[in-house]
Amino acid sequence: MLRNRQLRNMLLIMILLSIVGAIIIYYMHPMAGIISFIMMCLLALCSILYTFQRYREIEKLSSYLRTISTGNYSLDIRDNEEGELSIIKNEIYKVTLMLTKQGEFLKKEKEQLADSLSDISHQLKTPLTSMMIMIDLLSDANLKPDKRIEFTKNIEIQLERMEWLLTSLLKLSKIDAGTVTFKKEKVFVSELIQKSLEPLFIPIEIKDQELKIEGNPDIGFYGDLNWTSEAVINIIKNCIEHTHNGGIISIFYKDNPIYTEICIGDNGSGIGKEDLPYIFKRFYKGKNASEESIGIGLAMAWSIIKIQNGDISVTSHKNRGTQFHIKFYKQIS
């Protein structure tokens, strides 16, 4: 405590003033001078004890901060008393809580990153292994021409699958990192549906599926047409894949004062109850998922819709079909 120069100067001034004051009073009245000197000494002692106590509290705070710096956030120093030290204690406790939450969030992020890397490695390992085997077979000079064409075609399919996976992961990583700027423009749902269906007309035609679209062409919302189209494509694609030949893909959209809703459904095999809570989770593949499914399309759709003040939910019944409900909430001006 006495290492503090300001405190030493204060004590020195207090002592000098006490001595000078006591001497002056002593010349005026000896007994009063003695009493005043004693009282001044007691006041100085009380001041020293009070300062010493404050230094002990400050030392506790310093020790607490050192503990925090080691990563231990379990201590609780909340103080309901009045005073500046109590305020500092409570503020430090608030910072500790914030650091605790940030630490938990960072830990969770690391775990998710590790899981994602593991999933990506697994997703890439299968097509790579398959291609290596086929390339080895293609090196055989005695391989029949029809088999050579078949293996070459399979390698092309695997490469396209890997390209789609890596492109999708890149888009998702940009969304997660917040580096994507989503536009806030008027998007007409009819235009969005038309744009989303363009790359899917051939798969629909191949499976001889019926396409039903219903909605007011004037209905729209504020968002990003291109990115929202990415989400809708993945949802419709999921419906096409899980609907039998000759099935029905239905798209219905409507509007109300609170949100614009787009309903995309099918009359396919449906999604099992045990799978419903996880279908928007990355790399999750339900029991009815096809072998080509990677489990990233619906996760991307969920991220794109959520970041645009939207929501997506799903209802499904076995062998009766699945319905995706997309809602874009309106901004209150």
Rank of each mutant, 00 (worst) to 15 (best):
R148G: 06
E150P: 00
K108S: 11
V180R: 04
L159E: 13
K237T: 09
I135A: 03
L166M: 13
R3Q: 14
F324R: 01
R78V: 13
L45C: 11
M40T: 06
I271R: 00
L65P: 03
Q158V: 02
I305Y: 02
H317R: 09
E111Y: 03
Q53T: 13
L137V: 04
I13Q: 05
F105P: 00
T228C: 15
L45I: 12
D218Y: 08
R282L: 07
L49H: 06
S303D: 03
T243P: 10
Q323R: 05
G321N: 01
L197N: 10
Y64G: 04
A32C: 04
I68H: 05
K212E: 11
L16V: 06
L159P: 04
L138K: 00
E109H: 14
S121A: 13
F37H: 02
Q331W: 10
M39H: 09
I240G: 08
Q6P: 01
E57I: 09
Y93E: 07
F252C: 15
I305F: 08
S168Q: 05
M162T: 12
T70Y: 11
S196P: 07
G33S: 10
L11Y: 07
L172R: 06
D176S: 06
I175Q: 05
N72I: 06
I296Q: 00
I294L: 08
A44L: 10
S139Q: 12
S74V: 14
D266V: 09
N267I: 07
E91K: 09
I262E: 04
T228W: 06
I204G: 07
N80G: 14
F283T: 04
S74F: 11
I307R: 08
K89F: 03
K281Y: 10
D255L: 09
I25K: 00
K254G: 12
F221G: 02
Y222I: 13
L124S: 02
P203C: 10
K108I: 03
E205W: 06
E185S: 13
I135E: 03
G286L: 01
V20H: 04
I271Y: 01
A177E: 09
S69H: 07
I157F: 08
G270R: 01
L298R: 00
L169S: 02
I248F: 15
S121Q: 09
L170I: 03
Y329H: 12
G215V: 03
S139D: 08
S74L: 14
Q209R: 13
S250R: 15
K330R: 10
N256R: 13
V232Q: 01
P145C: 02
D266H: 12
K273Y: 07
Y278F: 15
F283Y: 15
Y64L: 09
L7I: 09
M14D: 05
M162S: 10
L11F: 10
L169W: 01
P30W: 04
R56P: 05
K174N: 07
S250K: 14
A44D: 13
I23S: 13
L17M: 09
I294C: 03
F37Q: 01
Q209Y: 11
G71W: 04
T126P: 00
Y259H: 15
Y73P: 01
I204C: 12
K287S: 12
T152C: 08
L117T: 00
I326R: 00
H317S: 05
Q112T: 10
Y64Q: 08
A177D: 09
